[in-house]
Design a protein around this nucleic acid. Structure first.
Lengths: 146, 146
DNA sequence: ACTCATGTAATATACTGAGTTACATGAAAG
DNA sequence: CTTTCATGTAACTCAGTATATTACATGAGT
């Protein structure tokens, strides 16, 4: 199945913004995330609603961070983009009269829920600052280069 | 995102077969899993290759189990159907020169891998017999009914 | 006024899983 | 040995969906 890159894209964009003081245009951000300006605006809309970023129109406009990277978790970001489906596997009919179906749903459902919970827990435990700090661990010289 | 029901479907089919002695036709199995006979045959092909089931042509033909339910795990089944993608989330470019991208991939990749591992571990720890035994826990009277 | 940037609806494109059709192969029944 | 029935499989269609694109409106700055 085709995996959605929306989540990693938005993180990319946010960290990219963290690397500069001036507002960044959708077009610039789109280029860095290898996507389209309109897609960027759509994704960012959710983050703006929650006050994590802000946008300005016109000359010198664009996007800028308005949050403390230490206080925003990956879960906040994930949630801001609409909390898309995490698992590519699922049950056909979640509520069925068929006993076989029920048994299957019980067994797989348990595993699915555990995996999802773990993922969510990991997201909650990681802040944007954590991710940002990973960058610094790479060899010196172009820490903020695209 | 649209979740794949292939895995739960094949489990459904296998347990359905476990409920009767005679070979079951693709059409019957398809009906019980709410899908198409050809789809059933396609899915089952992988299981046949591994010897978990066998098929006979012609009159009185169909599918039958040829394995010990206690010895086949959900992972075996999952693997038999081609080990489809478990996660609906992923990174855009797994290997990139961009440091920001790398940092994001590191952070999310870690979480993704953990979730996937947990799922796999759960599948390995559950046999078809385990799932089958869940059926018996439901109220008496129609244990093998569709 | 004019340019630039976002906001957003509407549309197009690409992809992919699933379903379907069609026909070949082989087994059992009569 | 012909008919019937079931699987085996390639090829194709269909439907759903994420993403990308186009087009135009809005509002800030110059």
């Amino acid at each position: 199945m085709k995996k959605s890159t929306k989540f990693s894209d938005v993180l990319h964009i946010l960290l990219h913004m963290a690397g500069s003081r001036n507002p960044a245009r959708s077009e610039t951000l789109a280029k860095s995330a290898q996507t389209n300006p309109v897609v960027v605006r759509r994704i960012m809309a959710g983050l703006r609603e929650r006050g994590f970023v802000q946008s300005e129109k016109g000359h010198g406009g664009g996007w800028s961070l308005s949050c403390d990277l230490k206080k925003v978790t990956l879960y906040d970001v994930y949630d801001s983009i609409g909390a898309p489906t995490m698992l590519a596997l699922g049950n056909r009919a979640e509520s069925s009269k068929c006993l076989v179906e029920k048994a299957v749903n019980t067994a797989t459902g348990h595993a699915f829920r555990e995996a999802e919970s773990l993922l969510i827990a990991n997201f909650r435990n990681t802040t944007l600052a954590d991710v940002h700090s990973i960058i610094k661990k790479y060899p010196r010289g172009h820490a903020k280069r695209k």
